[in-house]
Design a binder for these strands. Structure first.
Length: 709
DNA sequence: AATCCGTCTATTTTT
DNA sequence: TAGACGGATT
């Protein structure tokens, strides 16, 4: 059977597993997606199950799309009827279909995190909460964490004054959402979970429908998602979970790796299949990855191997400063380019976004094309949010978030005062802002009446029209385009608004869906590309987190310094260090042919020069696979770097009792460190030294046995 | 309604 | 250092 050609024995075993729940531990580059999609194709092709009996869940829309294309390429038949999507997308689908049972209006809107933040702020204001003690961001976090634990406000354990207040705010927030017909991300999950647990008929319906449930990136599931899966799985459902505990890097947003062991127990998994053959990286790179991750204690255990050769050694470079590190990157990349490497096949990775600036500067002055991932996405842009708010208001006048966002945008003389009166009126009459406005704007000439007229006319004139035209009419009627055209820096925004029409057209043709409601859900659930693909051959710059799932011929992991990577915040959290190490593991395993590691002795952070020790992760990679590149080259033309240098030439150069700031030293007990500061003189002379993982110490020169290293 | 200014704070991010 | 934000000013 051609489907199964070229599968290795473990992959084959996973794909053709009989009807029993299974956990597939799929290492980086082991053909995880291939196994998942081939499994689905195989189930269908062997007549085991019809497409409608399959539910496949992923985390990102990209992964879901990828899965669908690959499955359809393998099968001659239509796979309509199969449910493939993200947790949130599938919940949206279920809640739309059963909105009545779920207690939601048919046209419920979805709040993205931005919208949710604004909604929380409104609640805090309405309840007169002191925002210094209960910041909106933290409150939002509290509510989401509670929902992800499956808890409603009434289920919150009141431990103290704080939790009591939080629970009240949570309750008020939920009430507000319900009143306005809006649903946040966590609510999609929780509401679906409640719907299915309360409604036996529905539950049984789906349980008997979905014979096979397949989950991608299982290590990233949170507690609620796991409960959701358990609820949907009937006694006859076969679960197929694919994941890699070593690549679990999202604990900070609720991912619970423990789900993997719980899964083994809950679903009586008899054998765990390990996919350990790696088809991506050369041997030395894998050896580095294996050795590094071996330092973690909490693992299910797995060792990648490859039939490819050792390949090249891992290259390690130590720079004097972050500026020099960037210069070195440029040199190295130029030489890669000369050897025929495509820039798009080269990734520069860093732990946190702030690190990209120096690198970008160097690339820019050299004229090397690059593309930075991360940042604002299409549907998150202000002008797009404004436009969507008009559409939402036309679809659902109860949506207060949308109302408040655009009532006075473009400015039409509805000030804060008017809006407050309006909110007061709405509260006392128990109506929505829209209705209150309709009541208050008796005089047709008022600004408020004008606004309502705009919303009403958008609704009326777009009835039954195709989606792209609806968007165009909204853009014209709302005055958004006119407003941005008159603004001096508005050209980009006008262009983006035009792009929204295209997005609507693309949505119609791709999804074959003409409903405004569906488009709005799409906008909330899929925030779009970070940056339009340039198409050009450009270097890829991104955080290690966003590199997960990708691969490149050459990878640079930069800023490998204690405090940066592993990040200093992480060392305080329990399991924080292991998560950082997993992150490093993910970074290393992105590389196919060539891997570079680099760190700088000195780096400008938060406007201050910091002296950093090399990351412990460098030491955790075996010497045998590493090649140290000759140290910091001297550049003749320092002028190009001048903007980065002055901070350290001053204080750093004065010798102090034989030591200077920035110098590396060796201590018998604490090991290697860097002199950061000095004070006192004579017998009182003390040096402050950053020993990295041993911490920052003040040592008396008289006693400490320091040697320069 | 727009702009200015001082204060504050600095991981990682998808839906 | 830089950016985001809120309050006060024009």
């Amino acid at each position: 059977m051609s489907l199964l050609e070229n599968l290795n024995p473990e992959q084959l075993a996973a794909v053709t597993l009989p009807d029993q729940s299974a956990l597939i531990l799929a290492g980086a580059g082991s053909g995880k997606t291939r196994v998942l999609t081939t499994r689905i194709a195989w189930l269908i092709q062997t007549g085991n199950v019809s497409p409608s009996g399959i539910l496949a869940v992923t985390f990102t829309n990209k992964a879901a799309k990828e899965m669908l294309t690959r499955i359809s390429a393998m099968l001659p038949i239509s796979i309509r009827g199969m449910w493939v999507g993200t947790f949130h997308g599938l919940c949206n689908r279920l809640l739309r279909t059963h909105h009545r049972d779920a207690g939601l209006p048919q046209l419920f809107q979805i709040l993205d995190s931005q919208d949710q933040h604004a909604a929380v702020k409104r609640v805090l204001k309405a309840l007169n909460v002191d925002e210094d003690r209960f910041p909106a961001r933290e409150t939002q976090y509290f509510i989401n964490a509670a929902k992800e634990e499956g808890k409603r406000a009434k289920d919150i354990e009141i431990a103290d004054e704080f939790t009591r207040r939080y629970a009240e705010i949570y309750a008020a927030y939920d009430e507000q959402c319900q009143r306005e017909g809006v649903v946040d991300f966590a609510e999609l999950l929780l509401r679906t979970h409640e719907l299915l647990s309360k409604n036996e008929v529905l539950r049984e319906h789906y349980r008997s429908r979905f014979r096979h449930i397949l989950v991608d990136e299982f290590q990233d599931t949170n507690r609620l998602q796991y409960r959701w899966l358990k609820l949907l799985a009937g006694p006859k459902t076969v679960m197929f979970a694919v994941g890699d505990d070593d690549q679990s890097i999202y604990r900070f947003r609720g991912a619970h790796v423990g789900n993997m062991t719980e899964f083994e127990r809950d679903f009586r998994v008899e054998n765990v299949i390990r996919l350990e053959q790696n088809y991506r990286s050369h041997g030395h790179i894998l050896a580095a990855a294996n050795a590094l991750i071996g330092h973690n204690r909490k693992r299910l255990g797995k060792n990648l191997w490859t039939s490819a050769g050792h390949g090249e050694p891992v290259r390690l470079y130590e720079a004097q400063t972050d500026g020099y590190e960037a210069r070195w990157l440029v040199e190295e990349i130029q030489s890669l380019r000369r050897s025929g490497m495509r820039l798009a096949d080269v990734a520069i990775l860093y732990r946190s976004n702030a690190q990209s600036r120096v690198i970008e500067h160097a690339l820019f002055s050299e004229g090397l094309p690059y593309r930075v991932y991360g940042g604002l996405r299409f549907f998150e842009r202000t002008e797009i949010k404004h436009a969507l708010a008009y559409l939402r208001l036309a679809a659902n006048p109860e949506d207060e978030g949308a109302f408040l966002r655009v009532a006075n945008f473009p400015a039409r003389g509805i000030g804060a005062r008017t809006l407050e009166q309006l909110q007061e009126a709405a509260r006392t009459q128990g109506t929505s802002l829209y209705e209150a406005a309709a009541g208050l704007s008796g005089k047709p000439g008022t600004a408020l009446a004008g606004f309502l007229r705009i919303v009403d006319s958008i609704r009326a004139e777009t009835q039954g029209l195709p989606l792209p035209e609806t968007v165009e009419i909204m853009l014209a009627k709302s005055g958004l385009v006119a407003h941005y055209k008159s603004e001096k820096d508005g050209a980009d925004r006008v262009e983006n608004l035009g792009e929204l029409v295209n997005a609507a057209a693309a949505f119609v043709s791709e999804e074959d869906e003409h409903d405004l409601q569906a488009f709005l859900a799409h906008a909330a659930l899929e925030s779009g590309e970070t940056q339009a693909a340039e198409g050009a051959d450009a270097l890829q710059l991104m955080t290690v987190h966003s590199a997960k799932g990708l691969e490149f011929a050459a990878v640079f992991i930069t800023g490998l310094e204690e405090g940066l990577f592993p990040h200093e915040q992480s060392v305080l959290e329990d399991d924080g260090l292991e998560e950082e190490r997993r992150l490093m593991y993910v970074a290393i395993t992105r590389a196919r042919l060539r891997l570079y590691l680099s760190h700088a002795q000195t780096r400008l952070l938060h406007g201050q020069t910091r002296y950093n020790v090399a990351s412990r992760f460098i030491d955790e990679i075996p010497e045998g696979v590493v090649k140290r590149l000759s140290s910091a080259p001297r550049y003749e033309r320092l002028d190009e770097l001048a903007w980065r240098e002055p901070a350290r030439t001053g204080a750093g150069s004065k010798p102090y009792h034989g030591f200077r700031i920035g110098q590396s030293v060796q201590h018998p007990k604490f090991g290697q460190g860097v002199v950061v500061n000095a004070e006192g003189s004579g017998a009182d002379a003390r040096l402050q030294i950053n020993f990295g993982r041993q911490g920052m110490k003040w040592l008396a020169l008289e006693y400490a046995k320091l040697t320069s290293a």
